[in-house]
């Protein structure tokens, strides 16, 4: 296309006529540096319910212009929804050549309503996406939810080998508590303690692998994190014990039973993958250290965190641990590192 030729007059005239008809403009000339109507024209009756008198103030008929006049510099108020549900673009400008101030009203109802349909669909999708992220985040943590939403969360169905840290935490004395209390009270207490266990795990980029009755299995290092997996798991474990301690204090003040938790942590090679059929799939981690973490947890006393050697070695700043010797079911004699709060 040759763009050198100017638009022929006839085309310009048709374009102008077309747009003038579509926009149904109304214009008001203001006495310079005031808000008083000097002259008016166009389809002003369709924008104002009251009569506009020459010499009167435009802000009394159009009170939303209060504080905006006289015109100091040109401005535009797009898509103002009028009382008759029409959408109007309002342009205010000063013509330096003639030293006049102008208000121009253009009807943009049609184009705005068309845009609204797209806007509505886009906003609804965004709200739905946020809602899904939030629901997913409750189960797998914010980071996993974000990745799932962005499409960057992928697991190799055949299994991926990786060094991860596994954490098991379990409520001590839950079975007798369950047997001696009303089911409603048990559910309430379980939710309170679960809250103490799950939040720290999710905050440290851990993934809740399973909730097993009154216990939780979580894995760290599946997702890329700034810290190493052992550090994340250890920070989560300390936070769990602190939260349980605070909860017990509160429950004690309310005259309710107090329960404690024991935690086991182990680090090692694991195969991460998806188990299950096409209809029902679940993420899982399989490795020898997973069993070790479970055994350490079952040996941990109330308030105690037991770690294997690999986890302690991986910690960036390990605190002072007590070295303990344990005989673990299915594993035999082993050393572990204990921290009791």
């Amino acid at each position: 296309m040759n763009t050198q030729h100017p638009i022929p007059d006839i085309i310009s005239q048709h374009l102008a006529a077309y747009h003038i008809q579509t926009l149904a403009p109304a214009w008001i000339e203001l006495t310079p540096q005031t808000d008083q109507i000097q002259s008016l024209g166009g389809a002003w009756q369709s924008y104002f319910t009251t009569n506009l008198e020459l010499g009167s103030s435009i802000t009394s008929a159009c009170e939303y212009l209060q504080g905006m006049l006289p015109i100091q510099e040109s401005f535009e108020l797009p898509q103002v929804q009028m009382r008759n549900d029409k959408y109007t673009d309002i342009l205010a400008f000063h013509d330096a050549q003639t030293q006049t101030d102008w208000l121009l009203f253009c009807d943009v109802t049609m184009s705005t309503l068309q845009l609204q349909e797209y806007q509505q669909a886009a906003n609804e999708l965004n709200l739905l996406k946020d809602q899904l992220n939030q629901t997913l985040g409750r189960f797998v943590g914010e980071e996993v939810a974000q990745r799932a939403s962005n499409g960057t969360l992928q697991f190799n169905i055949a299994g991926e080998r990786k060094v991860i840290t596994t954490l098991f935490v379990d409520i001590r004395g839950f079975t007798p508590f369950n047997e001696s209390h009303d089911a409603q009270d048990v559910m309430h207490a379980l939710n309170q303690y679960m809250d103490c266990m799950l939040k720290p795990i999710l905050e440290e980029a851990g993934m809740v692998d399973k909730i097993i009755g009154d216990g939780v299995m979580a894995v760290f290092g599946v997702l890329a994190s700034d810290n190493n997996s052992a550090d994340n798991a250890f920070v989560a474990a300390k936070s769990i014990q602190a939260k349980v301690k605070a909860l017990n204090k509160q429950r004690g003040n309310e005259g309710q039973d107090q329960l404690g938790v024991g935690i086991g942590i182990a680090t090692g090679d694991a195969v991460l993958g998806i188990l299950g059929s096409h209809e029902r799939r679940a993420f899982t981690a399989i490795g020898r250290h997973v069993n070790l973490a479970a055994r350490l947890e079952s040996n941990a006393r109330i308030g105690e965190i037991l770690l294997d050697e690999a986890s302690v070695t991986a910690l960036d700043n390990p605190p002072s641990f007590a070295l303990v010797s344990l005989t673990l079911k299915g594993i035999g004699k082993t050393h572990a590192y204990s921290l009791t709060s």
């Binding site: 898509q79 103002v80 959408y87 845009l115 609804e124």
Partner: peptide, 12 residues
């Protein structure tokens, strides 16, 4: 019902 707002609506 959620209805996406366009532009500005002025109430008093």
């Amino acid at each position: 019902k959620y209805l996406s707002s366009m532009g500005v609506k002025i109430d008093r």
